[in-house]
Amino acid sequence: MLNTAVRILGDLDMAQDVHQEVFLAIWKRWHKYNGRTNWNAYLYRVTVRKAIELARQSRFEQSLPRQTGCIAGGQKVDGPLRTAELQARLAEHLARLPKRQAEVFVLSRIEGLDAGQIADVLDCSPKTVRVHLHRAVKRLARELGDYLSE
């Protein structure tokens, strides 16, 4: 969950806020859950939603985020910096996408889930997932166009 939040927000402090918030929310409401809850899907869903919500609420500065103890394997010397910049810009634009498109994009492109797995997390059909992904990718590519063309 912590990794998911960091990948979305590009900021460890904010990711830890999300992480803590998710656990506290479960803790407070736990008597309402039952033994058949699909926890994997539930936790993914809640974490992604809270991270995107936090991205919407925050004012993202264009400065690079602080990342402590992070691993970015197999990249060139300037790779981590460029990745971090993309994370920051992406988080800003994700916050502007329709909620469901942002969720599908994160789960697919950042978390690497396939359409069936995403459908399970978000409780919708794989076809719906593909439509949302399609729209999100097109829009983000258009809005990040200048940056991506550099």
Partner: peptide, 12 residues
Amino acid sequence: ERIREFSVGPEA
């Protein structure tokens, strides 16, 4: 895909 490779370290 580069973002996906990212993971936090043990101290985090």
